[in-house]
Simulated scan of single mutants.
Amino acid sequence: MLRRARELAMRALFAHTQGGVDLEEAFRHALEEMGGEEDSYGDSLDQEGVAFARRLLEGYKAHAEEVDQVLRDTVEGWDFAQMSKTDLTVLRLAAYEMLYEPTPFAPLIEVAVKIANRYGGEHSGAFVNGVLGRLYRRIQGGELKAVPKED
């Protein structure tokens, strides 16, 4: 369920940042599209999932400058203009969640990689995994603060 919620948030943020669509309008449109899609993982998108997706979007929006700066400092050899916009969108939401949500790191990174593989290019999953792995090491090393994680 949370994987589908993260996918919903990613699709809405992508439409907002790349298409210039109002965030709420992008969210409604992405939710409408996903409501009719079959999901190969068998996950449903219930009200709890919709609320979680909205929380991720609102959280990223509130912390966008900090999250983007953390990503700029974490990504090696790329700037945002060179990156796939899909990969950047996945990274923005995953980095927000790693820093500001109590979600454990391992499942969060795993789902981000799956979403990148589904929507991105051939190497998107590996790229996202590498960046989030570096971000994880920065957090674990005490260089960055993150909210305590659930067990």
Rank of each mutant, 00 (worst) to 15 (best):
R3M: 09
R3Q: 09
R6W: 05
A9T: 07
R11E: 10
A12R: 07
F14T: 00
A15L: 14
G20R: 09
A26P: 06
H29Q: 14
H29F: 06
H29L: 13
H29N: 04
H29D: 11
E32C: 01
E32P: 02
E33A: 10
M34H: 04
G36W: 07
E37I: 01
E37S: 08
E37D: 14
S40M: 13
S40E: 15
Y41K: 13
Y41A: 13
Y41Q: 09
Q47A: 15
G49L: 10
V50A: 11
R55W: 11
L56Y: 08
E65H: 10
E66P: 06
V67T: 10
V70P: 02
V75M: 12
E76V: 15
G77N: 03
K85L: 11
T86A: 06
L88D: 06
V90N: 05
L91W: 02
A94Q: 07
M98H: 04
L99D: 06
Y100P: 02
P102S: 06
P102F: 09
P102D: 07
P107F: 05
L108R: 05
E110K: 14
V111R: 04
Y119W: 13
Y119A: 10
G121L: 09
H123I: 02
S124K: 08
S124A: 14
A126Y: 11
F127V: 07
V128N: 06
V131A: 07
R137C: 07
R138A: 11
G142H: 09
G142E: 08
A146C: 03
E150C: 00
E150T: 01
E150L: 13
D151F: 05
